[in-house]
Amino acid sequence: MSATAVRPATTGTTTQRPRTRRKAGAGLGLVAWLAGIVFFLPIAWMALTSFHSESDAATNPPSFAASLTLDGYREFFGAGGGASPWPALINSAVASIASTLFVLVLALPAAYALSIRPVKKWTDVLFFFLSTKMLPVVAGLLPIYLFAKNTGMLDNIWLLVILYTSMNLPIAVWMMQSFLAEVPVAIIEAARVDGAKLPTILARVVAPIALPGIAATSLICFIFSWNELLFARVLTGVVAETAPVFLTGFITSQGLFLAKVCAASLVISLPVLAAGFAAQDKLVQGLSLGAVK
């Protein structure tokens, strides 16, 4: 009796599954593109309006075929006799960059202690950090204002640096704790056996491995600091005025000059967009770190 190979029966479902998955992936891709276009349209409209004259920008519905001009940008940079935006932009850069650096210096050892070398009841510590963000910002505005007034720190850019550091530190510790939890402990133990001290381990072992997470954390802290308005509006005047506060000065009793406001908004948004574009690969790696085992 000759042996005959038994061929498993095939059904149409096995061949239809890849097609179904491809159709589902194409559908999700289409939805993602549509969502991206919807979120991009206001930015595109703002950019187009910034190149229109005030009369064309004020038309309703907007005139997309109107002539283009750079008058809005000239007036924003003080060509029409207005205030120069450069001091406000420099103040925002100093406050955002300095506070972000301070946050990283403080958050990295804290995240190391809560992930790689966990302290007792480290979950309670994380909850305490998170609870500091539950206080409404307005509730702490008056005490901070009185403290700044009594210490002579009103209209001082370093007061904003201290505030932005304290505001972003809990978020940074939370984010970096999850990133540092993915660092192999064996590498740290090997460095410790070789005689490396804690600062050396943090700078030369932990930081390079967790660089995507550090980049994501720093970018988010930079964005939060750059866009902060309430404290900067109340605690600063002329010397330490930041870019968002300078932007509010375009809303006057004479009305809203739409083209100039759109030009100012686009210029003030460029540093954040440039930072996000420069760190986009590290940002994606950092936000997805630990998502796939």
Rank of each mutant, 00 (worst) to 15 (best):
A274C: 15
V173K: 02
A57T: 02
I157T: 11
G249K: 15
F128D: 12
L256N: 05
I97D: 10
N168K: 02
G255E: 14
L141C: 05
L141S: 08
K197F: 07
A32H: 03
V245M: 06
S131G: 07
V193I: 12
A279L: 12
D56K: 02
V205I: 14
L266I: 04
F128W: 10
K149V: 06
I37W: 12
L289I: 07
A232L: 06
A196E: 11
I201K: 09
A291F: 02
A264W: 03
W174I: 15
W33Y: 13
L130R: 01
T132L: 15
T248G: 11
P199N: 12
V292S: 04
V292A: 01
Y73W: 10
A232F: 07
F39K: 03
A79K: 10
P8C: 08
P62L: 09
T165H: 00
A95R: 01
C221M: 11
A259K: 08
F250K: 12
I162L: 07
A32S: 06
S218F: 00
L211H: 01
T15F: 05
S115W: 02
I187M: 12
L135T: 09
I144T: 15
P85T: 04
S265L: 00
N156I: 03
F51D: 13
H52I: 09
C262P: 04
T15S: 07
L180Y: 04
V261T: 13
L48E: 12
L34I: 09
L106F: 03
V272P: 04
L70D: 04
N156F: 01
T59L: 15
S63L: 10
L130A: 09
E189W: 08
F222V: 08
A44D: 00
A32L: 07
P118H: 01
K282A: 10
E228I: 13
S50V: 02
V292F: 05
Q280C: 04
T10M: 02
L159Q: 07
I116G: 14
P184M: 13
E241A: 03
R22V: 12
A243R: 10
P118G: 01
G27Y: 08
A111Y: 01
Q285M: 13
